[in-house]
Write a protein that binds this DNA or RNA. Structure first.
Length: 492
RNA sequence: CGAGAAGUAGCGCAGUUGGUAGCGCACUACGUUCGGGACGUAGGGGUCGCGUGUUCGAGUCACGUCUUCUCGACCA
């Protein structure tokens, strides 16, 4: 991969400035650390939502919606949870403004102070569990499988467009179960849903694994993650699924009567992915010419650019294009005919490449005469001539091929940047080169913390489905015995 | 909040020892072009982040202040 791309991925503002991200996908809002998602970018998010929603429904999950504001008292019930989020919350203290008695503008009305402050949700466990309490009395009420699509606010000290914005969009699933086994299985099932989505829809190779205790979600007994590798070799946590045990049930006193008539606390999971996935998409697949979108998520899968000199030619070519468009749309593809007569073809080519449109169809007078089109693919930037005859099938196959090729490309990049490391000295230099390092770890938080302090590297996960390496060894830092290798990396 | 850097046209930038506010892209009009980001001609667009000071005179100097970016601490 070109060095420039690496630098762009590393220095996000470069992407933001040079590429479609700033020009067309999003622009920074006046609010610190928030983002505006423009229509083209939002269309990608909507596509993600619809694919994920279908998968959730298959898992029996239904959508619901819970309030934005959480009373402070709710939030403080789960001790670990509050410790994890307290430092990054937006707090509502008043409910009214008034004209400034001393002059211009408005001020907060001191009379309108709230009895109890409201927290703008950084995540909804607390308000959802206080609600679930009223929904659950018997084993017959379980499981409860809800998901909500919403925004959350985390007052991060430092923000990064798409990857860590103060406000972001996400989905959060919250489930309640009768048994530990069932909840644990659900957490695993949902991380697999995410992995499947990342791999097959986003064309993003991810490693599924367990987080180390240090990296776990606040209040969880186990956190499962999908970890991706960006083009600069840094790791990105793309989604998580938590087994929460009975922590929240106990904090919010959610008990049910089991078949034997005994009271028991329910078992919980929560899981989420956010608009960070759009950052992953950009940083995993983009190149010097802009975005590269997998066909499964591209708002426009095929763009058609006419090449013409005269108005007559333009009209004739456009007629042909609309005809082809109809055919392609019938085959289920989203198609855009770029009929602007004020721009030259070369300009349009560059513009659609910037936006990551997977397939471009160009038709000029010569093609019109020959019954051919020029097909260009975004992932490889190659062009080929194709017959108008059977074009829908050709493009269908091409889109599938592009989807697979983007995935294969990202996969081979990742494989090329995963390596084993067995010496601490080597580790310290290797980790700065990026990529995943498979190393032995003694399983203690102390060692993990020391490695983080010295190198900034964290345990991304203890892998369960790729790079699994269960073998005897010694911890790379402490020298204590270890039974398996874990993935270390510098992360976003 | 600590350490650096930067704020000048929509975007990217130049502006020398203080002396009439500039360039490229974009924008508007007309013409020639059109198979990989066209060219010519003519235009429009500015409280130089904000404030105070020094000076005959400040984009430029001093002090203050705000904002943004990068790097830490925090985190999806």
């Amino acid at each position: 991969m070109a060095k420039e791309v690496t630098n762009r991925a590393e220095n996000y503002s470069q992407w933001y400035n040079d590429l479609v991200v700033k020009a067309d996908l999003a622009e920074q809002s006046a609010v610190r650390g928030c983002m505006v998602i423009k229509p083209y970018g939002y269309a990608i998010w909507e596509k993600m939502q619809s694919v994920l929603d279908a998968k959730f429904k298959k898992s029996g999950v239904q959508n619901a919606y819970f309030p934005l504001f959480i009373p402070k008292s709710f939030f403080s019930r789960e001790a670990e949870h509050v410790a994890g989020f307290a430092k990054e919350c937006a707090v509502v203290t008043h409910h009214r403004l008034m004209n400034d008695p001393n002059g211009k503008g408005v001020v907060v009305d001191p009379e309108a102070k709230l009895e109890e402050e409201l927290i703008v949700r950084p995540t909804s466990e607390t308000i959802i569990w206080s609600t679930y309490k009223n929904w659950i009395t018997s084993w017959r009420d379980l499981p409860i499988l809800c998901n909500q699509w919403c925004n959350v606010v985390r007052w991060e000290m430092r923000t990064r467009l798409f990857l860590r914005t103060a406000e972001f969009l996400w989905q959060e699933g919250h489930t309640a179960h009768a048994t530990s086994e069932e909840a644990s299985a659900k957490a695993y099932e949902m991380v697999q849903v995410y992995a499947d989505f990342a791999r097959n829809t986003m064309a993003l190779p991810v490693v599924v694994g367990h987080k180390s205790p240090n990296e776990r979600f606040a209040g969880a007994l186990d956190t499962l993650t999908i970890e991706a590798m960006m083009q600069d070799g840094k790791a990105l946590q793309a989604g998580t699924s938590h087994f929460l045990g009975q922590n929240f049930a106990k904090s919010f006193d959610v008990q049910y009567t089991n078949k034997e008539g005994k009271q028991e606390y329910v078992w919980a999971t929560s899981w989420g992915v956010s608009t960070r996935l759009m950052g992953a998409l950009i940083m995993a697949h983009g190149d010097d010419n802009g975005l590269v979108l997998p066909p499964a998520l591209a708002p426009i899968q095929v763009v058609m650019v006419p090449i013409f000199k005269t108005a007559e030619e333009h009209e004739a070519i456009l007629d042909k294009m609309y005809e082809i468009k109809k055919e392609l749309e019938a085959a289920g593809h989203s198609v855009k005919v770029d009929d602007r007569d004020t721009l030259r073809p070369g300009f349009k080519f560059a513009e659609w490449e910037l936006k990551g449109v997977p397939v471009r169809v160009a038709i000029g007078p010569r093609d019109l005469a020959n019954g051919t089109v020029e097909l260009a693919r975004r992932d490889t930037l190659t062009k080929q001539s194709a017959s108008v005859e059977g074009l829908a099938d050709t493009i269908d196959a091409l889109l599938q091929d592009i989807q697979q090729n983007i995935y294969a490309k990202a996969m081979s990049f990742r494989d090329a940047n995963v390596r084993k490391c067995d010496s601490w000295e080597e580790f310290k230099t290797e980790i700065t080169k990026g990529g995943f390092l498979l190393c032995h770890w003694d399983g203690t938080a102390e060692t993990e913390q020391k490695i983080k302090d010295e190198t900034k590297a964290t345990i991304r996960c203890i892998p369960v489905d790729s790079y699994v390496c269960e073998e005897e060894g010694v911890d790379i830092y402490s020298g204590k015995p270890s039974k398996q290798r874990v993935i270390f990396a510098i992360s976003y």
